[in-house]
Design a protein around this nucleic acid. Structure first.
Length: 818
RNA sequence: GCCGAAGUGGCGGAACUGGCAUACGCGUCGGUCUCAAAAACCGAUGAUCGUAAGGUCAUGUGGGUUCAAGUCCCACCUUCGGCACCA
């Protein structure tokens, strides 16, 4: 197909030029006007599609705009190259993960170049290379020193397909984040990062993140899941031991008619050891524990339980209440023991009805008094305390405070806070990751690899197919080592680290990517961070974005960096949808940028991607829309091909002699500038430029050619962040020297913005009946006269009385008539 | 169930602080050019009644506030996203 303008040639030419001139390689020591713009780095598991492109194109527009505004912009790029996606892809292709990863990186780089998106490539980081993961291991050691990396046996999420454990954050709707396989539970000894120590700060500091999307903050706050309540000790009858439970509804304590333990509760064996039905209880416990997590946590699943034969004492009224075990109590949350208040908790209510346990109302509905016998569901709203001894008659909200205080005084309970957030499980039984730098010595126990011995290299030749155990176990040369403390025989940790560890600090490494003595230079990092603008997909709201905040806070506490939040502004772009679904290879609806760029050019693909809709929202890809963008660029291109029109002098110096085209030009500069400064309103910015171009053509046909040249020049400048190749070429054709990136962003003159005449809508009783064209400066009396002179308006006033004028200057006129 | 986002022409979407709803683009229809087609260019395009002038109705639904509501308030419906037996 013949090209409407020589985009292939132009695009290649300018891409080479930008690279040669090093236009995107900032001086890191010069931090005056610094602007750190970061795009989430990609997984090199496959080629990029136009949906990925949105992320990079948005970033590139921001970068180019900021450069023209005079900022010293840092925009680095790298590859999140370790991890399951890369490894699974490699296995499928029968290649070593390193080979396929590096190959994919080359493909992606070519694609990024072809889009015309530019980066400080000299700062590239690739997380699977030893020069990078050495420092990932170093960060692990720092956490270990601080007691924030630890090993424990626990029930962990296991993906049977990926054959590895997963962090809580990587279990989505009961399935594996990567492959959707239902996740099971395993009791394993694993490495964890103690993110729970930071739960409160991670929650509190969300308030500092003023420029983050509300939805991301809400998701993080839900995920952290703070609840405040009281830990209450229940004495076990015929024993001197206590069971502690956590409740957020201490006001309902007088209605606690039984207590329930999670089947995993560690005290169960001891409690039931002399019970006649010991075998039955144990078999119940086993049957629940064998159930998959998803099945058990389904709300619709029937509540099942069994009486232990034991009793505990309700500490506020000394009543002996039965102790049960039930499937609806979770060991992971709170204390694994729950005081059950059937009257005021729906789950307890259902359970009590099923097993015939007593229901006692302790908070009454002030409007419709409750009857425990007749209740169909638990009463969970506020009310008045009853059956609660000295607290009767109080509002339950007041009682909540008083009972908590009472318990603390008596030493039977203590206010406490619980979080849903679990510690971050970071070990993986897979090959393609950074080895955990720890050593097991028979004599000395767990010993960290000394810093000087880093990196612990990942062996090359390994049978890396997933088996459920780390493939590194079978590599003798890796596994066998000596203890750094006693020099005795020892073995290395076989597991590798979760990829999310790699990506939770990469934004620091960009500042000094080749430094081999340190992970980063504190002074430089402190000058360039926090990141001014971070751009990426919302799917990382509670994974990468939470982990990065955590690691940043840890490094801050260790005084290794001087800031405790990594990302100042966050923008999360929407997905690009094709045929009603997210683009994916398995669905076969992937739109590749390669063909499109060949057919229409990168500028067309960029422009359409930006024009498709508000960038934070999902958008449906349309091939027709691409053609529309192409048509527009062709129209723009022709403006540089009509030199006669483009050479006229600038008309008029003052606002009084300004032509409509000049006025439109200044209005467009304002509109585009406001759209870029006020948010990422690329779609409306582009439509404004389209209007300007339409106006230029209209002016050309009117033959008032004098103003065409400045309007075309402005159009090119305004378009340059969006379609940089076309803009550079036209810039040169118009007789300017490259690069347009060095040109200041156009300014508008306020005086030229106000229209010479305004068209005011005239309403009668709020309905539009007429528009009048007047000068903006018109006085009220004269305006009234003009309106009343109109025949149509007079018709509407016939036989009626004009009661009131509403005149909003520059806006409208409304006549109230009866 | 809880939290969040959203609902506007045939389609993607505009609309600042309550002030001409449907900008811009796509599609469709008509025209110019052409032997013809494509491309390009010009024009029309919410629905409805009317020959016309013009009228009436339209921003998920129902109410309300206001001279004036896509925008504010109340109640609801639908879609999408997140969390979910969290005590």
């Amino acid at each position: 197909m013949e090209q409407a303008y020589p985009f292939t040639e132009i695009e290649k030419k300018w891409q080479a030029y930008w690279l040669e001139q090093g236009l995107f390689e900032p001086d890191i020591k010069d931090t005056k006007n610094k602007y750190y713009c970061l795009m989430m780095f990609p997984y090199p598991s496959a080629a990029l599609h136009v949906g990925h492109g949105r992320n990079y194109i948005i970033g590139d527009v921001v970068v180019r705009y900021k450069k023209m505004r005079g900022f010293n912009v840092l925009t680095p790029m790298g590859f999140d190259a370790f991890g399951l996606p890369a490894e699974n892809a490699a296995i499928k292709g029968g290649l070593h993960p390193r080979t396929s990863t590096l190959r994919n990186i080359a493909t992606m780089k070519r694609q990024l170049d072809a889009w015309g998106v530019c980066y400080a490539w000299s700062r590239q980081v690739i997380s699977c290379l030893p020069e990078y993961y050495k420092w990932t291991q170093w960060i692990f050691l720092k956490l270990y020193e601080k007691g924030l990396a630890y090993r424990k046996k626990a029930f962990v999420n296991w993906c049977p397909s990926c054959q590895t454990v997963l962090a809580n954050e990587q279990v989505v709707q009961g399935g594996c984040e990567r492959c959707d396989t239902p996740v099971t539970q395993k009791d394993l000894e694993q490495w964890f990062f103690k993110i729970t120590d930071y739960a409160d700060r991670l929650l509190q500091d969300l308030a500092k993140l003023e420029h983050w999307p509300e939805r991301v903050k809400t998701m993080q706050s839900n995920w952290i899941g703070k609840s405040e309540g009281v830990n209450i000790n229940f004495k076990i009858a015929d024993s001197d031991k206590c069971l502690t439970c956590f409740t957020t509804r201490v006001d309902t304590i007088f209605g606690a008619n039984y207590m329930v333990l999670a089947p995993e509760h560690p005290l169960i064996n001891e409690l039931i050891k002399d019970m006649p039905d010991k075998a039955g209880i144990l078999s119940f416990v086993k049957s629940v524990r064998d159930e998959s997590r998803i099945k058990r946590s389904d709300e619709n699943v029937d509540k099942k339980g069994i009486f232990t034969g034991r009793y505990v004492i309700n500490p506020v009224n000394n009543r002996k209440i039965p102790l049960w075990i039930a499937n609806y109590v979770l060991m992971e949350y709170g204390t694994g023991a729950v005081m059950a208040v059937p009257s005021h908790d729906q789950r307890d209510f259902e359970f009590a009805r099923k097993y015939g346990l007593p229901v006692t109302v302790v908070i009454d509905d002030p409007k419709f008094p409750l009857d425990a016998e007749l209740m169909k569901e638990a009463y969970v709203r506020d009310g008045i305390m009853v059956n609660s001894g000295e607290f009767n008659g109080l509002s339950n909200r007041v009682a909540m405070e008083k009972i908590a205080l009472f318990m603390e005084e008596k030493g039977i309970g203590k206010r406490s806070v619980h979080f849903k957030l679990r510690d971050w499980l970071i070990s993986r039984q897979r090959y393609w990751g950074a080895p955990i730098p720890m050593i097991y010595c028979d004599r000395c126990g767990i010993v960290p690899v000394p810093e000087k011995d880093l990196p612990v290299l990942l062996p090359e030749t390994v049978e890396f197919k997933p088996t459920g155990e780390s493939p590194l176990k079978s590599v003798g040369s890796f596994a066998d080592t000596v203890c750094p403390v006693c020099n005795g025989k020892a073995r290395r940790e076989f597991d590798t680290m979760d990829t999310f560890v790699d990506s939770s600090w990469y934004f620091l490494r960009y500042i000094s990517p080749r430094l081999d003595q340190k992970a980063f230079e504190k002074a430089d990092v402190d000058r360039w961070l926090p990141v001014d603008q971070y751009i990426g997909g919302v799917e990382h709201a509670i994974l990468h974005l939470l982990y990065s905040r955590f690691i940043t806070k840890v490094l801050y506490d260790l005084k290794l960096i001087g800031f405790d939040e990594p990302f100042h502004n966050l923008f999360t772009q929407g997905m690009i949808i094709k045929d009603g679904a997210k683009m994916s290879k398995s669905k076969g609806n992937v739109v590749s940028p390669d063909d499109l760029i060949e057919e229409y050019g990168a500028d067309t693909v960029r422009l359409y991607t930006l024009f498709i809709g508000p960038p934070e929202k999902d958008a449906e890809w349309s091939d027709r829309g691409v053609e529309g963008a192409y048509r527009f660029l062709r129209r723009v291109w022709r403006l540089a091909e009509s030199p006669a029109e483009a050479k006229g002098p600038v008309n008029g110096q003052g606002p009084e002699s300004v032509t409509p085209l000049m006025r439109k030009m200044h209005q467009t500069i304002k509109k585009v500038t406001d759209d870029l400064d006020g948010g990422f309103h690329f779609n409306t910015a582009i439509s404004a430029i389209m209007e300007l171009v339409n106006e230029i053509y209209a002016a050309m046909s009117r033959d008032d050619a004098g103003d065409i040249a400045p309007a075309v020049k402005t159009t090119v400048l305004l378009l340059s962040p969006f379609v940089p190749h076309l803009a550079e070429e036209m810039w040169q054709k118009l007789g300017h020297s490259p690069s347009i990136l060095k040109e200041p962003w156009p300014a508008y003159d306020r005086r030229f913005i106000l229209d010479e005449t305004v068209t005011l809508p005239v309403q009668v009783n709020g309905k539009l009946r007429l528009t009048v064209t007047v000068t903006p400066a018109i006085g009220e009396e004269e305006l009234k006269k003009t309106v009343l002179a109109d025949e149509k308006i007079r018709k509407w006033l016939e036989n009626k009385t004009l009661q009131k004028w509403i005149i909003i200057p520059h806006r409208l006129v409304n006549l109230i008539v009866k």
